[in-house]
Design a protein around this nucleic acid. Structure first.
Length: 452
RNA sequence: CGGGGUAUGGCGCAGUCUGGUAGCGCACCUGCUUUGGGAGCAGGGGGUCGCAAGUUCGAAUCUUGCUGCCCCGACCA
């Protein structure tokens, strides 16, 4: 009894007590599938163009993605801190970007008529922190990151969270003594990104990106393939199966072979596409698809350290500006990308690593003693196993319950009704394939919890 | 920022051309019947028709101005 009660105070939830405002029809402004499904599944609500409230279901997914991103950043040796959303214009004047940035920057004036801004990124601020405290080459390398809300006043926000104005982003910044060291930091992040997307259930392909005036080849966009992607991409089919390093990867070792196992194969977005090089691939290895950018890493040398005076003392006593790189992951955008890559006509199909609840339990006849008891048992067992189940104990009709559960896309459903129970079985449904089987309650619980 | 749409209850929509007391489906509340893939019947609540001026005896409807939102393009995580 106490066990059941205490588990209820964790993440598991009875639908009758939850806040899950499901819509049968999607608001007309939502055009693409991820946007429609997020609104219908009650994950978010638009408050202004490109600005959203995160409702409980959406917020849970957002936090799960954020946590995976965080764990992989930490594993690679990056260190988390937190910078504010509001910044002073003065910092941006130092780098020259205050005037250069244009109208995408949301400029704010405070009560003392001081010029402020809602940060679209944090290179200036992190450089300021660095120059304040770090003076010696001995303190390098250093990689600091935070996961914070950003604002870019896009001319035309669209596609829901895929192209919002306010968005959650992980941005990391590396500091090194020279370009060779910075390249090592870059390679570490490259590998951390491969691992992050893998854990999210996505196949992200690193593609060379435009490095602008700095040149070199140290900029990659991480792209996932989805038919609704925003840009055309071209790559070698072998990249889809190139192995991603496991949890035991040693980040102190040389990352270059891993990076090269990806960068030695053709991959480019439309802007960087080289038709001749692509056509040199055997025909059956040419993948021409659409993609969604979910991360971007680049090395930019002394672009900020130089004008902002972020220098360290070198062994010979001279001072040199540090070499920097920055590494972004669009955390909120990833929700949209995940849905674009994982859905069917009935709704969302969450990868297990980010599903808002690990499994759904549907009670087809609340009030029926046997059905209630079976559901209570499933709920307690799944909760105990840390599966974080959502228990639909409402008195809605079966059809509505099935439709809602499919819509929100939990990996597993255990469906309990009086008819099946009379034969000693419940229905176990795997959302991704739609595969259903009639098994005993214990077997269903065992099957769902075996991976947890 | 150029071009095009659109704005009527929480969501989807009709009504606007031709001015005359705001309607439908879903959702919500009550009751009854139902209950294994988005139930049926009956009753009920909820909207100053985006905002502001104007025309008119009378404006959701006509005129003017403004604003929000959406789509296409250029731009970006």
């Amino acid at each position: 009894m106490c066990r059941v009660l205490s588990s209820e105070h964790e993440d598991s939830m009875r639908l009758s007590r939850y806040f899950l405002p499901i819509l049968k029809e999607a608001p007309k402004e939502a055009e693409i599938v991820s946007h429609r499904l997020m609104l219908r599944a009650g994950m978010m609500r638009q408050q202004a163009a490109g600005i959203y409230s995160w409702l409980p279901l959406g917020y849970k997914v957002l936090m799960k993605i954020e946590q995976i991103v965080r764990e992989e950043q930490n594993r690679s040796g990056a260190i988390e801190l937190m910078m504010p959303t509001i910044q002073s214009a003065d910092l941006w004047r130092e780098s020259g970007r205050y005037d250069a940035y244009g109208k995408e920057m949301l400029r704010i004036t405070d009560r003392h008529e001081r010029e402020m801004l809602f940060g679209p990124t944090n290179e200036e601020m992190i450089t300021d922190i660095f120059r304040t405290y770090v003076r010696s080459y001995r303190d390098l390398p250093l990689n600091l990151y935070h996961i914070q809300w950003k604002f870019r006043d896009e001319v035309r926000p669209r596609f829901g969270v895929m192209r919002g104005r306010e968005f959650l982003m992980k941005d990391a910044y590396s500091f090194d003594v020279d370009q060779a060291a910075a390249e090592k930091a870059y390679a570490k992040m490259f590998v951390a990104y491969l691992r992050t997307y893998k854990r999210l259930g996505l196949t992200a392909i690193p593609m060379r990106a435009d490095t602008g005036p700095i040149g070199g080849n140290l900029s990659h966009e991480f792209i996932i393939l989805a038919s609704t992607g925003e840009s055309a991409v071209f790559c070698d089919k072998e990249l889809l199966d190139t192995p991603v390093p496991g949890e035991d990867v040693d980040f102190d070792a040389d990352m270059k072979p891993i990076v090269e196992s990806f960068t030695n194969k053709y991959a480019a977005t439309e802007e960087m596409h080289d038709e001749a090089a692509f056509n040199a691939l055997p025909e059956d290895r040419r993948v021409s698809a659409r993609g969604i950018e979910v991360g971007h890493i680049f090395y930019f040398g002394t672009k900020y350290s130089e004008p902002m005076g972020a220098k360290v003392a070198m062994p010979d006593g001279t001072e040199k500006p540090v070499h920097m790189g920055s590494y972004g992951v669009g955390v909120s955008r990833l929700i949209g990308a995940l849905i674009e890559a994982n859905h069917d006509d009935a709704g969302i199909i969450w990868p297990e690593s980010v599903a808002p609840f690990g499994a759904g339990i549907i009670n087809l006849r609340p009030g029926d003693a046997a059905v209630d008891a079976a559901c209570d048992k499933a709920y307690a067992e799944l909760s105990k196993a840390g599966l974080d189940p959502l228990y639909d104990d409402t008195d809605a009709r079966p059809g509505a319950k099935f439709a809602s559960m499919d819509l929100i896309g939990l990996p597993w459903q255990i469906i309990v009704g009086p008819k099946g129970l009379a034969d000693g079985v419940v229905e176990l449904k795997y959302r991704r394939t739609g595969e259903k089987q009639l098994v005993s309650l214990d077997a269903a619980i065992a099957r769902v919890t075996e991976k947890a």
